[in-house]
Nucleic acid binder design. Sequence first.
DNA 1: CTTGACCTTACCATGATGGGAAGGACTATC
DNA 2: GATAGTCCTTCCCATCATGGTAAGGTCAAG
Lengths: 160, 160
Amino acid sequence: MNIGEAAKASGVSAKMIRYYESTGLIPAAGRTGSGYRVYSDTEVQMLRFIRRSRDLGFPVEKIEELLALWRARSRQSGDVKRLALEQINGLERKISEMQSMMETLQHLADACCGDHRPDCPILADLGNGPSPVNKTGPAKKTGLPSSGRVTSASPRHTAT
Amino acid sequence: MNIGEAAKASGVSAKMIRYYESTGLIPAAGRTGSGYRVYSDTEVQMLRFIRRSRDLGFPVEKIEELLALWRARSRQSGDVKRLALEQINGLERKISEMQSMMETLQHLADACCGDHRPDCPILADLGNGPSPVNKTGPAKKTGLPSSGRVTSASPRHTAT
DNA sequence: CTTGACCTTACCATGATGGGAAGGACTATC
DNA sequence: GATAGTCCTTCCCATCATGGTAAGGTCAAG
């Protein structure tokens, strides 16, 4: 099977298959005499594993761990479950952050008459809203893509 | 006010202020004789507007529109409300996608005994899960950051 | 043998952000 | 006034997962 067929069969684009190989997420595929990559059913299954994991929102970093467990004969299901629960937690956090954004926006939108007049509580809030607090300095992490993906599989900036 | 003070006052990092200037989101700041950028209260308010908008998950692209409306004396609050509602819709979509990921993971985790044994329904699902369908080819948009951001304000890869 | 579909590598772009280097400017202390 | 330390400037690099494109080689069908 060449890379195009493996891509179709796994749902991972040829581009990404090469990328995963280059980053070491998957081992280098075999080659034909002329340099074409060759894939076995086992490798396609691994690619499908990766795609499915990405669909569930796992960062590639975690997929590396999942793959290791998948391959390990001596694995303990508890390790896998832990990764899954971590991922669930991460998703929960992101969801609640987005929900609070949504609520704020909903309040603002409710307060806005939304007609031809220029007075707008939404703009007023954006201009005067909560003070900066920290952010600039010690501000740590956590921020959302704004528009970004989120859908399911491969895509990039959904809303963007 | 120089850039550092403006950063503290607005909650937008000096780095990002320069970046916003370079992309044209905000007009070029005035300069002192020696080249330091100078900011007025009005400009700081604009920066705060931007930060607040980012906190609510607006992509910079949309913030450009919001800023234009903010400045326009002839604006109609309906236009602003429309942007807010669009943003709410986008957030809703992302949230429901993440929720379905979460549900799937929860089902899998529930089915996994999570002990020392190697048998794991999570790995089994990842390896055999739903077929690729399309994805590789015509697959269009919408995909989530995996781990990435999503939190609240500026940050990047939260989970990463 | 030509055509077209596919493969190869290599490089560039994305979006919003941080990091760092190299050098100039300002401020406070000695 | 010199020196130290903090701030500013610009420029370049990295991120993360993905797509695009370009230039060239390969293969299979006609």
